[in-house]
Design a protein around this nucleic acid. Sequence first.
RNA 1: GUGAGUGUAGCGCAAUUGGUUAGAGCUUCGGAUUGUGGUUCCGGCGGUUGAGGGUUCAAGUCCCUUCACUCACCCCA
Length: 478
Amino acid sequence: MSEIIKAPRGTRDILPAESWKWEYVINTAAEVMKDFGFAQIMLPMFEHTELFSRGVGETTDIVEKEMYTFTDRGDRSITLRPEATAGVMRAALENNLCAQGAFAKLWSWGAMFRYERPQKGRYRQFYQIDAECLGIENPEADVEIIDLSIELFRRLGLKNLEVVINSVGCENCRKIYRDKLYEYFSAHKSELCESCLARLERNPLRILDCKNPECGKIADGAPDIYDSLDDDCREHFEKVRAGLERLGFKYRIDKRLVRGLDYYTKTAYEILSGDLGAQNAVAGGGRYDNLANAVGSSVKIPGVGFACGLDRVVLVMEEQACSFGKIPEPEIYVVADDEESRKHAQILTHKLRNAGVHVECDISGRSFKNQIRNASGCKLACIVKDGKFEIRSKDDSGVGIVSKILEREREKFVDIKNVLAQKSTGFVDKALEILEHERDHVTNIKNVLEKKRAGDYSDGIVKLDNLDEAFDYLSANL
RNA sequence: GUGAGUGUAGCGCAAUUGGUUAGAGCUUCGGAUUGUGGUUCCGGCGGUUGAGGGUUCAAGUCCCUUCACUCACCCCA
């Protein structure tokens, strides 16, 4: 027991009980992406370390302490991707997807890796759905990306979401703002928490993000980023806002929203869920106009995109009891009695599956009885016995045996008559007991008869003499 | 990296102030029963109580170490 090797910390197996839900989410995402004109791109899960250290930013937490980095046999420094955007950009540059003013709308999904302490909604190997629009500076691209992410959640049926946006300005604005913040916070050094003191030197914007209430108070009085935005950035932000309003989206502006990755410029946004734990961001994204240059491009390739945490989406959907479509379960269960019947059952199952039907047939050697027990969940059961095929439909259950039950009832009434006639001790109770006991059967008959009145005259049991007939019947009656 | 909580059958749980052979339920498998179809009954499988050490006549229970999980900080999706 204790010797079994376990999955590494922060990783997990998405088991059959869960995986069908994931499939639904990914399929839904694929549909939304198609409707928005985004094409799928599949990327390596590891890249040269430099891509992330330069793209994401040397001073970010991701690069400083969260990357899975190793040296391969060729002495190259390799890193398991901690996020998707840098890789998408790399692929676009390498394959000239944005050459000569062309633009690309790309989406992808897959595993990301970050070395962090796991907790609710956070894993070391986690999954993201990711969409990027490369080569467009126009704010309408920002709006489309935000629209896309909201539409994805709308289709998945998520409730209780909040869209939060901000502008972090371009490189120039940010430099100016950064200096202002540095000046401001330097004057309050003694009141800042330990980590904020470190942030002051490296990235004062992060202090705005601090959840420490003391730091929060000081941050409240900090200079406003909007006073540092130049005309272009301000106009861009206004246009994004106007676009969102045009589409009827509600959003909140949060001046403290600072994305943790250095490449963001201008638009930054997050979609938060109230039904997650402390890790309440279900998606996040924004614009990154100088990522391309950071990873070595000589031409400027602007971009906007977002990433959505799949693990968290599934978590929230479960929390909110959202639909994941249909649970995959067999439409037909083929039950076999003896060795000879098992052979027929096997062939019939094979033929039905050839025809694209989800069929189950026992392969473990279960008893006839247990096979039937298992079949009871299916819409149709085909029982193979003595070379004959008997098909029973779940919906019509019991229809074929009405007469048998009625006969039984008649016997019961005779019993009651006898009991009453004897007038022994407690005879009334005994008679009532018999009637009570049979009440279920009576309502069963009632249901069956009502079905018949509704026009359903099949008796629920179809007897067929050979395999081909059984196949034809089953194919036609799904 | 820091803090708190939890580890007992495949799953979710129980076991008196430390006291006999660690128990039922669900699942699974087999049998009986019926209207051969979600019923009911009987039975089988299933455990080094996360691991290691200590205290004790005696440890699932107390102490230490370690590992894992969970939640939170940090940060993010």
